[in-house]
Simulated scan of single mutants.
Amino acid sequence: MSSPRLPNRPEPTDLTATGEEYFFPDVRTTVNLFAIHTRRVGREWSYPPHTHPQYEINIVLAGEQVMVVDGRSYTQRQGDLVLLRPGIVHSSYSSGEGFTYFCMHFDIDDKLFLSLLSRLEQVLFPAEGAVARQIGPALDKLLELSTPNAEQAGDSVAKRMRIQSAVFELFATLWEAVSSEAAHLPGRGYVQAELAHQIASRLQGRVNQHFGQIDSVEKHDGIEGISSELGISVSHCNRVFRSVFGVSPRVYLSGLVLHEAKLLLADPQWTVQQITDMLGYGNIAHFSRQFKRWSGQSPTSYRKSTVQESPSD
């Protein structure tokens, strides 16, 4: 008997019928947001020269301001976006009857996104340009949160989650808007970062697809197979990956496996023997040696530190 379809939802593609699977990419990006605000200022308003260690997005919502960046003046009108890199000296002042602006400071640990932003030489993105137009809807969603209602009052968890959601949508749109322009800029940093993230994505895919055969993945189907797929040498693969992530692909892969092992050990329904079998190690002794080498703890010690009552192993 077939299960009923949910109303108003499209019929999903039956990947299992053809023996296929699709794993969504893991999301481990950390973003820190600072001093997100909108402000209406008068005609005499100005802000002195300063720097900050984060990126800044500044958008004029009404009126006009002058932004001085590294000694160069930019007239910023309604809808114009300014994107400032960390450490850039900048100041601003009103050039007319006052203006309203939106400002957000952020840092993010996505190396590919940072590589893209660092290569952009453009500071002012005019309202009629592709970048400002494309991020408009995402920005509007974020600005809606500046007028709190009863459900979004104060610093509620729900409001903070909605802000994060809106900011990630803004970043995704910004990425799409500027990546094609950045790809034509000189320098190899962006290309290397993109290649490194392709390697990382494929390593994650190896762990997902071969869950239950981790030993095989580590020894035979890891960086060598990925290098072949990408048409590059193993040495180049290792060099590019290390330049972006700071560790070798093999160490990164071990971290992915460790992450899976910790998730399983934190669930008391599984014994260490079962986890050993699920991860594809030949025996408990082998799994224990690997886990202790990665984490500094035995599987049993780690479990005792994360769950109140450990099942018998």
Rank of each mutant, 00 (worst) to 15 (best):
Q192M: 04
D267L: 10
Q274K: 14
N238M: 08
I36T: 15
M278K: 13
L253Q: 11
V123W: 01
H37P: 02
T75R: 14
E229T: 03
E21G: 15
D70V: 07
E260C: 04
R239F: 05
S2Y: 14
W294K: 08
D107C: 10
H197P: 00
F168Y: 13
Q198V: 01
P4I: 00
R28Q: 11
S301P: 03
V234F: 07
E151T: 07
F241Q: 03
T51S: 06
P4H: 13
Q273T: 15
S233D: 00
D313C: 01
N8H: 15
Q134G: 12
A35W: 10
V41G: 12
Y55N: 11
D109I: 10
Q204G: 14
L15A: 14
I59A: 13
S233W: 07
F34L: 15
F106K: 06
Q122I: 08
A62N: 14
S94T: 11
L145N: 09
M1W: 04
Y55D: 08
L256V: 02
D140M: 08
F34S: 14
L6P: 02
G79P: 14
M1T: 11
L83H: 14
K304F: 02
V251A: 12
G187N: 01
R40M: 03
R162A: 14
L143N: 03
Q209S: 12
A153W: 10
T16R: 13
A127P: 11
S310T: 11
D26V: 07
H236F: 06
R242N: 14
E128T: 10
V207P: 01
V207Y: 08
L15V: 04
E224R: 05
N8I: 02
L263F: 02
G63C: 04
P148D: 05
S92F: 02
L120S: 10
H259G: 03
R293T: 06
L15I: 09
P299E: 00
H90P: 01
V272P: 01
G187M: 00
V89G: 12
E224Q: 10
E181N: 02
R40E: 14
R289Q: 13
R85E: 12
Y190T: 04
A132R: 11
Y55G: 11
I223T: 06
I36L: 15
F211N: 01
A200F: 00
E56R: 09
Y302I: 04
R72H: 13
A130F: 08
E151M: 04
R250I: 05
V41C: 07
F24L: 15
G189Q: 10
R43G: 07
G129H: 08
L81N: 01
L185K: 03
F125Q: 03
D277H: 14
L145W: 02
G19W: 05
V82L: 15
Q198W: 03
H50P: 02
S91K: 13
S248G: 14
L142H: 06
H52M: 10
D110F: 05
R40V: 13
I108C: 15
G154E: 07
D313E: 06
G71Y: 11
G136F: 06
V82G: 12
L174R: 11
S95D: 08
S201V: 03
Y101L: 07
A172F: 10
E181K: 07
G154K: 12
P311E: 00
L203Y: 02
Y22V: 11
Q204K: 05
L230S: 02
S298F: 08
T271S: 15
V178N: 03
L81G: 04
